[in-house]
Amino acid sequence: MTWVLDNLPRIGELTLAHLALSLPAVIIAFVLSIPLAWGANRVRVLREPVLTGTGLLYAVPSLPLFILLPALIGTSVRDPLNVVIALSIFGLALMVRSAAEALDAVTDDVRTSATAIGFSGVGRFFTVELPLAGPALLAGVRVVCVSSISLVSVSAVLGVSSLGSLFTDGFARNIIGSIVAGILMTVVLALICDLLLVLAGRMLMPWQQPSRRRRPLPARAREVSA
């Protein structure tokens, strides 16, 4: 405990470094997964190869990928960018399938209705299909976010600073407090980010709110029903 109090600034610093590695990866994975999933759904022949391919990426263990990437894209093993790219790949591996299934779950009836009332292809996608797929997409992003935040720490064995450094330092110097603080901070960080995503989902998709149904009907609606 005293170790934690003595090292609060360092823990704060590492937390920020941790976020700087994981959050961009989550965002990149989300943004890239939508067009990929859309394309995979659109061109049916590509659907299975894309989904199986990204699924296979997920089978690649994290540490070896951190080491393999520099050989493929010319970053250095200790480069934070390398970690961000590797995490984005993992995020994509999870996210593309969620996104493809989420977008695919929008029924043809809805699509044809939207077309019938005059939506163009692009407009229909952004105003009809994407919002309808929203809740399933959110579920996917939440999984990606939590797992990215916990995965980042592996990169500490390569010397990239994150909350994972608390594990490597703590192990090398036999400080249990350091490791426990690292685990707790990682879990807390994951929970906070998850909570923020849920709140963002509530704000962006107010129709999903469960409490909405329980609200009394607006006055005008009651008059009509009376």
């Binding site: 999984v143 939590v146 797992s147 935040i149 916990s150 995965l151 720490s153 592996v154 500490a156 064995v157 909350l163 994972g164 608390l166 594990f167 490597t168 703590g170 192990f171 036999n174 249990i176 490791i179 426990v180 690292g182 685990i183 990682t186 879990v187 994951a190 929970l191």
Partner: peptide
């Protein structure tokens, strides 16, 4: 399942190892 996803592997490993 939720906790397992959030738990950092390396942290768990080093903690038990100590």
């Amino acid at each position: 399942t939720g906790a397992a996803r959030a738990l950092p592997t390396l942290g768990l490993l080093t903690l038990v190892a100590l």
